[in-house]
Design a binder for these strands. Structure first.
Lengths: 218, 218
DNA sequence: CGTTAATATGAGGCAATCCTCACATTTGTG
DNA sequence: CACAAATGTGAGGATTGCCTCATATTAACG
């Protein structure tokens, strides 16, 4: 995980829209993305309207379309921005793991617990990410790449735990964990209050056990 | 679980639409639901068009709106139909568990494995169910009730395993298992071919371990 | 201060889609 | 067969929402 900012600049199917070059433009774009994040999260991709997004950003629709040629492009840019945010979480975690390892070798699955915790926080604070990651119109290639990036991050963390997880299980385990985190986030987001907390506890306990058993065997 | 057919008849916000009273009408409705199932699965709820659904059912739009006052009502009816289908799966499984129990007490988590298997098959054969169960416009009360029904079914099966799962864990465990099954279905539906099978195996293994451990402790 | 590129604006074109309605056809029933 | 109730039909009304465009405003820079 090296969080190479995935350039949200000019690319893709052209349509000639400008990347902001002045400070005001940059701010506009940022405000638009913030508004989009809120509206997408509340309404879902399809029901979200560009007019509403512009309104919340304090901009006119024309202004919106000056920077994003398409509702879809706007969504893509926001998705990329969130991916970068997640990459930062991974980087931070990797750094901490490095530090902890030189002090104490016992941490073990603690890093996965921490990952779980932080990603949940991030997803709860940015519910639009899940919406955009599951939207029907998402380009499969982009989806695949996004998944690869996240799974790579998880696999990287898995490699730091002791005793090591066998190589051939890294990929499926990373995929599984990513899905579990998404599931936990959805659970917290829309499930019954009385059930969601115990269920998440159960979920984490289940994963912890599985990881422990996986390390022993193999 | 007693699979009381959730009457898809006249109710809700009126709008005066008729339930078919002649054979031809019944067939039409059935054909429309089949077509809807296919179209919803392919396009998602919002992008699915009533015109396309009618076309595939070999009916005119007018005919569709004769039986379903609204696209939303059509979706609701289909959702209910699928719920009934799932209830049937639960009933069958419960019956088998009963039979197996009197022969051999060893089955244990076998019933959960079977549940997993069958629900996966059902969901793979009826992908519209997940689409409809997650659509934004789904009435929260209906969603809640649907979940309760499914979780109740799972909890019922959990109670038959030996040694017994402690009472207070039944509900969260059922919720967790339901989510896991949904996750497995999504995984199989849209994940990378190389990763999905090992990941599902890993998932089931994880759940099996967790169940075993849960029984021992508590 | 004048020029020019960047940014801002919002009325409206255009296309898509849900649903209605007036009328046609079928089929059960006396 | 005659009548009525159920079912069938598809053009178009009404709405919605993405996006364009002609024009206005702002601000960097010499």
């Amino acid at each position: 995980m090296d969080s190479q900012k995935s350039s949200a600049g000019a690319s893709e199917t052209a349509k000639t829209t400008k990347t902001p070059s002045r400070g005001r433009g940059v701010q506009r774009v940022s405000a638009l993305l913030d508004a989009a994040s809120a509206v997408f999260a509340e309404a879902g991709y399809e029901a979200a309207t560009t007019t509403e997004i512009a309104r919340r950003a304090g901009a006119s629709i024309g202004s919106l379309y000056q920077f994003f040629p398409t509702k879809e492009h706007l969504a893509a840019a926001l998705h990329a921005r969130h991916l970068d945010g997640l990459a930062a979480v991974f980087d931070g975690l990797a750094a901490e793991a490095q530090g902890a390892a030189s002090e104490q070798g016992a941490a073990g699955d603690g890093i996965i617990d921490a990952l779980f915790q932080r990603l949940l926080v991030y997803l709860e604070a940015n519910p639009a990410f899940l919406v955009l990651g599951e939207r029907r119109s998402l380009d499969p290639a982009v989806k695949k790449q996004a998944r690869a990036r996240l799974r790579g991050g998880i696999a990287g963390l898995l490699q730091t735990i002791e005793p090591p997880v066998p190589r051939e299980r890294l990929a499926p385990l990373a995929a599984l964990i990513l899905h579990l985190i998404r599931m936990a986030a959805m659970l917290r987001a829309d499930d019954d209050l009385a059930i969601r907390d115990p269920a998440v506890v159960e979920l984490r306990e289940m994963l912890r056990r599985h990881l422990a058993a996986t390390q022993v065997k193999a």
